[in-house]
């Protein structure tokens, strides 16, 4: 129930496969995207087009780290994106994909 504390981004595993939760909708916007979870009825914002690109490529990438690289995120920016993905994971917007 943390509200101001950072979500457990340290726990977010960039080396695992991730995907958008099947009950989540993504709506593109000029600033990035709106994300809505139909089960938790929560709304989130993806506040950059790069983050949108990362999230959109999660499902087709073997790992979240690969999705970041595919979206052009370099090592310097990676921690911020790891944190962002951790936030989305903590709220159930994205979930770990079963290995195929």
């Amino acid at each position: 129930m943390s509200t101001t504390l950072d979500p457990p981004s340290a726990a977010f595993d960039l080396d695992r496969p991730w995907d958008l939760h099947p009950r989540v909708s993504l709506r593109r916007e000029p600033f990035g995207a709106l994300v809505y979870h139909f089960d938790t009825r929560r709304l989130s914002f993806l506040k950059s087009l790069d983050l949108l690109a990362v999230v959109e490529s999660l499902g087709a990438s073997p790992t979240a780290g690969e999705a970041c690289r595919a979206a052009g995120i370099d090592d310097e920016r990676l921690p911020a994106y790891r944190h962002a993905l951790g936030t989305l994971a903590a709220s159930g917007m994205i979930c770990e994909r079963r290995p195929r």
Partner: peptide
């Protein structure tokens, strides 16, 4: 009202 939001990246 009642929308619970998570901000994405910071």
């Amino acid at each position: 009202a009642g929308l619970r939001t998570t901000h994405g990246p910071r």
